[in-house]
């Protein structure tokens, strides 16, 4: 649909939140006791923050939960049975206040989960998701969305995108039918926009992703990978905080005869990720695993999924315990 621009006053925003959270799950950012920003389901409006630069974890778990049950079973040896998961019970979720980088990640995830046969666990959750995004009016040194083809106010993935104005009200760009349904259900809360100006963060471009992708075509054997991953401890934090990392494990867990099969987030940074039963490991040292992470996001995915595997949120750099900074590394890579 054609984008409609409206204005929502600060005080109306609270009413909109109240209306939405009265009838469905709203996943919104709050500042935790340790000052980290995390998303919670239906927090009190007073707790919801509009001033976060970035939450520690991405919000991908609304479509790709950390742990997701794939089935339940009873193992009776001869008469084992499976109980399927009822995906029709997946509730509608309104994602509130997530930034454009996170919202852009749904297309990336879709190119992984639905490129061939459709993963209904993911697809159903995405179908039930309504995104009320929040453009960034502030950034930090880790942000690099402008280096991966996005901006602090990219509309991609949002159903409604809110942008803060100088007076503290919000411009609402209504981008999809899902977004429009929310607006038409609360018409009194939205006014016509009158050229109000949004405050948008400045994010400096630090590298050219097309040049990086080009460089990677011939960089597989380059000493860059060893030199730049010596301090990597293989903790996998970068993958766990990443909005586009989608690699997962499948495991069984049973108590007596009753059990479940579930999938959970995994990381290509772990040595066990590729270890064969024979003991052979195709990526046996950390530099190979670091190379895989960069190659996958900036070379293999553009080639295969026609999408970069990175949205420039900077979480992997903020969260890295040994200060590996992906944006700095990609700048370096561009110049090898």
């Amino acid at each position: 649909m054609e984008t409609i621009k409206k204005l929502i006053r600060k005080q109306s925003l609270e009413k909109l939140y109240a209306t939405l959270s009265a009838s469905r799950k709203v996943y919104a950012p709050v500042v935790a006791a340790d000052k980290r920003v995390e998303y919670k389901y239906n927090p009190a409006y007073a707790e919801v923050t509009f001033e976060h630069i970035q939450s520690t974890l991405s919000v991908k778990n609304v479509v790709f939960p950390k742990v997701e049950n794939l089935m339940y079973y009873t193992n009776n040896k001869v008469d084992s049975t499976i109980t399927d998961i009822d995906l029709t019970k997946i509730p509608e979720v309104v994602l509130w206040g997530s930034h454009p980088c996170d919202n852009s990640a749904y297309d990336v995830l879709k190119s992984i989960f639905c490129w061939d046969i459709k993963d209904e666990f993911f697809a159903k959750r995405l179908e039930k998701l309504v995104v009320i995004g929040l453009a960034c009016h502030q950034s930090d040194a880790y942000c690099f969305c402008t280096s991966v083809g996005l901006t602090p106010n990219s509309t991609k993935g949002s159903d409604i995108l809110l942008s803060k104005t100088k007076s503290g009200d919000y411009i609402a760009e209504i981008l999809t039918e899902k977004g429009n349904a929310i607006v038409t259900a609360s018409p009194d809360l939205f006014e016509n926009a009158n050229n109000e100006e949004a405050v948008i963060a400045e994010v400096k471009q630090t590298f050219n992703h097309e040049q990086v992708t080009e460089k990677l075509k011939t960089a597989f054997e380059h000493p860059f990978w060893v030199a730049n991953s010596l301090r990597c401890i293989g903790c996998g934090a970068c993958a766990y905080v990443c909005p586009t990392c989608a690699c997962f494990d499948i495991q069984d867990e049973a108590k007596g005869k009753e059990g479940r099969r579930y999938r959970s987030w995994d990381s290509c940074g772990f040595g066990l990720f590729t270890l064969h039963t024979s003991g052979h490991n195709p990526r046996e040292v950390q530099s190979q695993r670091w190379r895989q992470r960069i190659m996958h996001k900036f070379s293999y995915m553009p080639d295969r999924n026609e999408s970069l595997g990175c949205v420039g949120c900077g979480r992997c750099s903020r969260g890295c315990p040994v200060d590996m900074n992906i944006s700095e590394q990609l700048q370096g890579l561009q110049n090898i």
């Binding site: 992984i112 989960f113 490129w115 690699c247 997962f248 494990d249 590729t274 190659m295 295969r304």
Partner: peptide
């Protein structure tokens, strides 16, 4: 070829070799 696999249909990422 054999690589460690979980899903079997190109989603879990484990058997990825190049693209």
């Amino acid at each position: 070829l054999e690589n460690r696999m979980k899903c079997g249909f190109g989603k879990c990422g484990r058997c990825n070799v190049g693209k």
